[in-house]
C-alpha cells in the first residue's frame, strides 16, 4: 500500500525520539565544555617531553640524539644539542622546539625515540591568539613531569618506568661487574707485583746466603 514505507519510517523516528529520554544508547551528545568525554589512554595529540625529578630542564630524559627530528614526516622538530665551554656535546638539548602548527600528531617521534623521552599528550585545547610564535613550543613548554605522564597514560608509563628501571639495573650491574673485574685485575696485578717482589727478596736472600 502506498504510504506504508513512510509510516514505518515515522515509527522509527518516533521510537528514537522517545527512546532518547530513557536510554543512553540513543542519546549520545555531550554538552562540551561543561561535560567532557573520557579520553582513551591511547589518545594522541601533540608530543611533549618527559622529565624525571623536580627540575624540568635538568631532568629531561632527552639526550638530543635527533632521532625524532630525522624521522618526523613534516620536519617540525628543531633541536640544538647543549655543549660545554670546550665545545663537548652534553647529551642535553639546548633548543628543543616543536612547531605544532605543522605537527600532524602522527606519533612517529614517540615511536622512534630510544630514550622514552618524547611522548604523545592528551591536551587538545591549544588555541592561541598568536598564530606563529604561540604555536611554536619551546622545551620549557614541552617539558612535563613523569607524574603527569602517569596521570594520562598509566599503563604505558608504568611499563616505561619498569623497562627504564630494568635498563638502569642492568647498566649498574654491568658497571659493578666492570668495577669488580677492575678490582680483581688490580688485585691480581698487586699480587703479581707482590709475588715478584717476594721472589726478588727471596732471590736476594738466597744470594746473601
Amino acid at each position: 500500500m502506498l504510504g506504508t514505507g513512510i509510516l514505518k519510517g515515522l515509527y522509527i523516528t518516533a521510537k528514537n525520539l522517545v527512546g532518547s529520554y530513557y536510554s543512553s544508547e540513543r542519546l549520545t551528545t555531550i554538552q562540551y565544555p561543561e561535560q567532557r568525554a573520557q579520553l582513551p589512554e591511547n589518545y594522541r595529540n601533540f608530543p611533549f617531553l618527559v622529565y624525571d625529578g623536580e627540575d624540568a630542564i635538568d631532568g629531561l630524559r632527552c639526550t638530543a640524539c635527533k632521532m625524532c627530528e630525522k624521522e618526523c614526516p613534516p620536519q617540525c622538530i628543531y633541536i640544538i644539542p647543549e655543549r660545554d665551554e670546550k665545545g663537548k656535546l652534553q647529551k642535553k638539548p639546548k633548543v628543543f622546539d616543536i612547531d605544532i602548527s605543522v605537527c600532524m600528531g602522527c606519533g612517529i617521534c614517540a615511536e622512534v625515540c630510544p630514550f622514552e623521552s618524547i611522548k604523545m599528550d592528551h591536551h587538545f585545547e591549544v588555541a592561541q591568539r598568536n598564530r606563529f610564535a604561540g604555536l611554536l613550543l619551546h622545551r620549557e613548554q614541552l617539558a612535563k613531569s613523569n607524574k603527569y605522564y602517569h596521570s594520562i597514560r598509566p599503563k604505558e608509563a608504568t611499563a616505561v618506568d619498569e623497562s627504564l628501571a630494568e635498563e638502569k639495573r642492568k647498566a649498574e650491574e654491568k658497571a659493578k661487574a666492570a668495577a669488580a673485574a677492575k678490582e680483581a685485575a688490580a688485585k691480581a696485578a698487586a699480587a703479581k707485583a707482590a709475588d715478584a717482589a717476594k721472589a726478588k727478596t727471596d732471590d736476594l736472600e738466597e744470594k746473601k746466603n
Binding site: L2, T4, G5, I6, K8, G9, Y11, I12, T13, N16
Partner: peptide, 14 residues
C-alpha cells in the same frame, strides 16, 4: 535493521 525499515522500502526514496 532500523535503517532498512526507515528507508529501503520508502516510497519517496524509491
Amino acid at each position: 535493521d532500523e535503517q532498512d525499515a526507515l528507508l529501503t522500502g520508502n516510497e519517496i526514496l524509491l
